[in-house]
């Protein structure tokens, strides 16, 4: 199972095994990673599962859909180059070792 590292704003890390096909948001929730709110449960409807993807992985992710792009304009923490909604990133073996940082706020 591919591993993902969730880094908190204070630098603390959770390393989580994510089944292929699960979203980064779901894996965070089911492993009780703090800081991912996901009020809408993965519907790309609330922008409260925002993460910053480490530079090395940005290009390897599936592209940002129009819907996700619009929602990323509405995140509580600032949008940066690596900003993604974790509910929209499905885990696959190619993403082994992915590192994401959780912003300081989601609402």
């Amino acid at each position: 199972m591919p591993k993902v590292t969730y880094r908190q704003p204070d630098g603390a890390e959770n390393v989580v095994d994510v089944p292929a096909g699960w979203s980064l948001m779901e894996a965070a929730i089911q492993n009780d990673v703090d800081g991912i709110v996901a009020e809408c449960g993965g519907g790309c409807a609330c922008a409260t599962c925002h993460v910053y993807v480490d530079d090395a992985f940005v290009e390897r992710l599936p592209p940002i859909s129009d819907m996700e792009g619009d929602m990323l304009e509405c995140t509580a923490a600032e949008r940066r180059a690596g900003s993604r909604l974790s509910c929209q990133i499905k885990m696959s073996d190619e993403l082994e070792g992915l590192v994401v940082t959780i912003p300081d706020r989601q609402t």
Partner: peptide
């Protein structure tokens, strides 16, 4: 409808 940016702007 399929227009989340409007939705989020309206909420704000």
């Amino acid at each position: 409808v399929n227009r989340p940016a409007d939705h989020m702007a309206c909420r704000r």
